[in-house]
């Protein structure tokens, strides 16, 4: 699928939050950002097509829908909020996507998955402006779930902190893009291969 096609698909049909919940820092990833981010992850890094992908805090499912369109074998979108999941489900049905799995769960909960089962994690987590540190909880969970890479959007003001934490967690961080609009940064985390 071409980038323009992906972006226009995401623009046309995706419903977003009716009443965003401030406490959950709900805001939709714009179709423009989602399309560019996903297209690059797929074409440059080959981390979507034929992969098992997870979207932590999927919200109304913009990233999950785009990931499914780029032929992930299965994209698992996880969110705590019923209203968001209902919109996500509507979007998935609208596009007749068969390769999406939604789960209702709290990302900060203790493990509900056993180990590094996903190939890739792609997410737009809460920035942690309302709930301090939630961004780092998402990131930590993501790194525990992904066997290859984590792609995540963060505020540029947190870059140094994330870099330090990523190193502590044995991941390597690369800044892939600096974005304006409501989102500021996207990072790629590569798992360090363990050396024995």
């Amino acid at each position: 699928m071409k980038l323009k096609q992906l972006e226009s698909h995401l623009q046309m049909v995706v419903d977003t939050f009716d009443k965003p919940k401030i406490s959950l820092e709900q805001y939709a990833t714009t179709p423009h950002i989602a399309a560019h981010m996903l297209y690059n992850i797929d074409t440059m890094y080959n981390d979507i097509q034929g992969k098992l992908v997870c979207d932590l805090g999927c919200g109304c499912g913009v990233l999950s829908v785009g990931t499914a369109m780029l032929d992930a074998s299965l994209i698992v979108g996880i969110d705590i909020d019923d209203d968001a999941l209902m919109i996500a489900r509507r979007n998935i049905e609208e596009f007749e996507l068969e390769n999406v799995q939604l789960i209702k769960a709290n990302i900060s909960d203790t493990e509900f998955f056993g180990g590094k089962i996903f190939d890739t994690v792609i997410m737009n987590p809460p920035f942690g402006t309302k709930d301090k540190g939630i961004d780092m909880i998402f990131l930590h969970r993501a790194l525990k779930l992904a066997s290859t890479s984590v792609y995540s959007l963060h505020k540029s003001s947190t870059r140094q902190h994330i870099k330090k934490k990523a190193a502590e967690w044995g991941a390597e961080m690369t800044v892939l893009a600096e974005l304006r609009f409501n989102l500021e940064n996207t990072y790629k985390f590569h798992k360090h291969k363990s050396v024995s």
Binding site: K21, L85, L102
Partner: peptide, 15 residues
């Protein structure tokens, strides 16, 4: 429900 498993443990809710 609707294909979505609810893995929340209990009282926790977003709304």
């Amino acid at each position: 429900s609707n294909g979505i498993p609810n893995m929340l443990l209990g009282e926790e809710s977003s709304s």
